[in-house]
Amino acid sequence: MMDQINRSESESLYATDGGSKIHKSAHTIRLELVDEPGSLLEALKPIVANEGNLLSIYHERGKKSPRGRVPVEVDFEATDRQYNSIIMAFRRSGFTVVETGKSQYSEEFIVLLAGDVIETDVTDTIERVRDGSNVSVIDVSLTPGQSEDEISGARFRLATQEGKMSETLEMLREITEEKGLKLIEPLTEVER
């Protein structure tokens, strides 16, 4: 905590001298883009808008993710504060951030929700999970039901800080119970 406070203080000192780079550190993030013209440019906007310095972009157009998206690796320099703003901007614009090089969320896991997730307000469900402490929503996929306009379930890919998984699952249990959805949790080792 002390460390963080010191850093933000020094950051504000340097902010007056024309934007020194010396407190920026390098980050690598991996995004998944829809394969459409302009999506790469769109993806870089949050970095530029938040004054991050782009270092390199590796766009693997030929290689698609299991969800049919194109993975892109972006290296950039940013202060911790800028980095957080960039990640938040990505999430707001609906980008899927698959991995981040300097992530605080080390435990990644998947849960499934069965039931009509649309009818029960999927945006609200996602927001509430996101609002939970120590958890990040990496991506959400919906699955169609028997008829075209029916949604029968969803997959949430989540990441939590180490040791915070059971807390997150407890929160998910509350949300799904309230909405009448069925939660399918991963089978994990017993915490001793």
């Binding site: 969800r67 499934l112 069965a114 996929s141 699955t143 039901g145 379930g153 997959r155 069925k182």
Partner: peptide
């Protein structure tokens, strides 16, 4: 009873499947 087949397909995309599990431990 209310697990749709499509949810098993979604699980399969991540090399996982769904099983009815009973769990007994100190909790």
């Amino acid at each position: 009873t209310n697990i749709p087949g499509s949810l098993l397909e979604l699980a399969a995309q991540d090399s996982r499947t769904i099983r009815l599990i009973g769990e007994v431990n100190g909790n």
